[in-house]
């Protein structure tokens, strides 16, 4: 899986184990329409994850800032991953207030099906 570089945002794709694909979010996601870039990338990621039966780990600990349009794109990824039965985990830095508020709120999409997990780190 290739990295994504779009403006101030870099998503580094790393596969350290046969079952987990890590996506490390670096920099800032502040594009006017981030969905235009993120949605095709997420589609590729989901295709690879389905083919290889991978869990996708989204790591936001080193992300400096994202705009609300990026949150929309992440919600779309959560919805699409669930519809394809791909497991997602979201790791964030709970010591950074904006990250804690943003990602704790996304727990509303945990539906007890084990397909979305949150791992606060600090």
């Amino acid at each position: 899986m290739e990295d994504l570089i779009a403006g101030d945002l870099k998503i580094q794709a790393i596969q350290r184990t046969p079952t987990i694909l890590e996506l490390l979010w670096l920099g800032k996601s502040n594009a006017r329409n981030p969905t235009a870039v993120l949605s095709p990338y997420f589609s590729q990621v989901l295709t690879v994850a389905m083919e290889q039966k991978l869990t996708i780990e989204l790591h936001f600990e080193r992300l400096e800032h994202f705009n609300s349009s990026t949150i929309t794109a992440i919600i779309q990824l959560i919805q699409e991953a669930r519809s394809k039965a791909v497991k997602l985990t979201i790791t964030f830095d709970q010591g950074i207030k904006w990250q804690k508020l943003s990602f704790d709120a996304l727990r509303v999409f945990s539906k007890g099906d084990g397909l979305l997990e949150f791992r606060p780190a600090s």
Binding site: I71, T72, I75, I78, A105, V108
Partner: peptide
Amino acid sequence: YMAALTMVYERAE
């Protein structure tokens, strides 16, 4: 905010 997130999720569907 939770209500708005849920609306975004439903629109994504």
